[in-house]
Deep mutational scan, measured.
Amino acid sequence: QKEELKEKAKEAVKRGNKDKARELLKRAGISEEEAKKIIKKIE
């Protein structure tokens, strides 16, 4: 489940939808700070 949400978040970032990505990562139980780092890494 968590990995699936991370994959979806990756796709969202690639489409330029960072808010959606952050939302998905939060749903995966990832903190706001972690989510920001992950999104930065994907960009």
Rank of each mutant, 00 (worst) to 15 (best):
E34K: 05
K14R: 14
A21W: 06
E4L: 13
E43K: 05
G16W: 03
I39W: 04
N17D: 15
E7V: 07
S31H: 04
L25D: 00
L25R: 02
A35T: 05
K6R: 10
N17E: 14
K14F: 11
D19T: 10
Q1F: 14
E33F: 06
R27C: 09
K36M: 15
K20T: 08
R27N: 06
K36Q: 13
L5D: 03
K18T: 12
E33M: 07
K6P: 02
I30Y: 15
E23A: 08
E11D: 08
R22G: 04
R27H: 06
E7L: 11
K10E: 08
E43P: 03
E7A: 11
K26T: 09
I42A: 09
L24K: 00
G29M: 02
E43C: 10
E32L: 08
K20D: 09
A28R: 02
K41L: 13
E33Y: 08
K40M: 14
A35C: 04
G29R: 02
A21F: 05
E11G: 04
A28V: 02
I30V: 10
G16H: 04
Q1G: 11
I38H: 02
A9Q: 01
E33K: 09
K2V: 14
I30E: 03
E34W: 05
S31R: 04
K2I: 15
G16I: 02
E11I: 08
K26H: 06
N17I: 04
K6G: 04
K8E: 10
L25I: 00
K40A: 15
N17K: 07
N17H: 11
E34F: 05
A28D: 00
I38F: 15
Q1H: 11
G16N: 04
L5M: 07
I39N: 00
A35F: 05
K10G: 05
S31Q: 05
D19I: 10
S31M: 05
N17W: 12
Q1C: 14
E43Y: 10
G29S: 02
V13P: 01
R27M: 11
A28C: 13
K41E: 15
K6V: 15
K8Y: 07
K26R: 14
E3P: 04
R22W: 14
N17Y: 11
R27W: 06
E43Q: 08
Q1I: 13
K18A: 09
L5Y: 08
K41S: 13
K36V: 13
E4S: 11
E43S: 07
K18S: 09
R15Y: 08
I39C: 03
L24N: 00
N17R: 09
G16M: 05
E32K: 06
K36I: 14
L25W: 00
K2M: 15
K40Q: 14
K36H: 13
K6H: 12
K8P: 01
D19E: 11
A35R: 02
K6N: 05
E34T: 05
Q1T: 14
R15Q: 13
E23K: 06
K14T: 06
L24G: 00
A12L: 15
I42F: 14
E33Q: 08
E32V: 07
G29N: 02
K10L: 10
E11W: 07
A12E: 12
K2E: 11
E34Y: 05
A12I: 04
K10V: 12
G29Q: 01
Q1Y: 14
D19N: 10
K37S: 11
K26P: 03
K18H: 12
K20A: 13
K14S: 07
R22E: 12
L5K: 02
G29I: 00
K20H: 11
K37H: 10
N17C: 14
L5E: 03
K37P: 00
K40C: 13
S31I: 03
D19F: 10
V13S: 02
S31C: 04
R22M: 15
I30Q: 02
G29H: 01
E3F: 07
R15E: 12
G16F: 04
I38C: 06
E11A: 09
K40V: 09
K8F: 07
N17F: 13
K18M: 14
E7W: 10
K20I: 11
K41F: 12
E33P: 05
E43H: 05
E4F: 14
A21K: 01
E34G: 04
K41I: 12
Q1W: 15
E43M: 11
R22P: 00
K14W: 11
I42W: 15
G16Q: 03
A21M: 03
A28K: 01
E23H: 06
A12P: 03
L24I: 06
K2R: 12
G29D: 02
K26E: 13
L25Q: 00
A21S: 00
K26D: 08
E23W: 07
